[in-house]
């Protein structure tokens, strides 16, 4: 009896396709959602706000605002997608392909190219601009206290209370990313 069972298994195995792939001749196919590695897609658009580094649970990202440098330690990154989700400018992208194996603990560095300081326009904020002590300012005359700025603030630095007509910003927590200015429906926020 067991002889026939064995014969069946042998015959099946002879004619079945192999379960493995001839890697690297046949490359691996990734799904559309596979988290392979994080890439800085648009160094020009990065504000160097540092939210990605703050949210990274593995401390893999380092942002130096003064030198305009964005770094990621490939061995430390755990591909959790937190940085990609929190980036206010959507300049970080998760690619499906894994990074190639490396005997060194590789750190990828990106130079962020910022233009010369200029006067801020609504929705076009330059992080290197001198903002002075005033920081983020709200024109309370036109503000409707909708709270969209607070809801979109990645640093949770803004507090809005519609009932009390209260709008306040925690200047230390504010990263000056300009996202609130972009989202404000009444365009009453300025730096």
């Amino acid at each position: 009896m067991s002889f026939f069972r064995m014969k069946k298994v042998v015959m099946n195995s002879l004619f079945k396709k192999p379960a493995t792939r001839m890697y690297p001749v046949i490359p691996r196919e990734f799904t559309s959602v596979t988290r392979g590695h994080v890439e800085m897609e648009d160094p020009e658009g990065c504000l160097a706000c540092g939210i990605c580094a703050k949210r990274c649970p593995a401390d893999a990202i380092r942002v130096d605002k003064s030198k305009g440098v964005w770094e990621i330690a490939r061995m430390q990154c755990i591909q959790c997608n937190s940085c990609v989700e929190t980036c206010p400018k959507h300049v970080l992208v998760m690619h499906a392909e894994y990074t190639t194996p490396d005997p060194e603990k590789k750190v990828d560095t990106y130079q962020l190219h910022h233009t010369e300081p200029k006067v801020a326009q609504v929705g076009d904020f330059d992080p290197q601009m001198e903002t002075g002590d005033a920081g983020l300012v709200c024109d309370k005359e036109s503000c409707v206290f909708c709270g969209l700025c607070a809801r979109n603030c990645p640093a949770e630095a803004i507090r809005v209370d519609r009932a009390e007509k209260l709008w306040e910003v925690d200047k230390d927590a504010c990263m000056k990313c300009g996202l609130c200015i972009e989202k404000c429906p009444k365009k009453c926020l300025t730096f």
Partner: peptide, 12 residues
Amino acid sequence: FEKTTGGRVIFS
């Protein structure tokens, strides 16, 4: 797992 979450063993 990879198709639904993006990860094979650690899904996040």
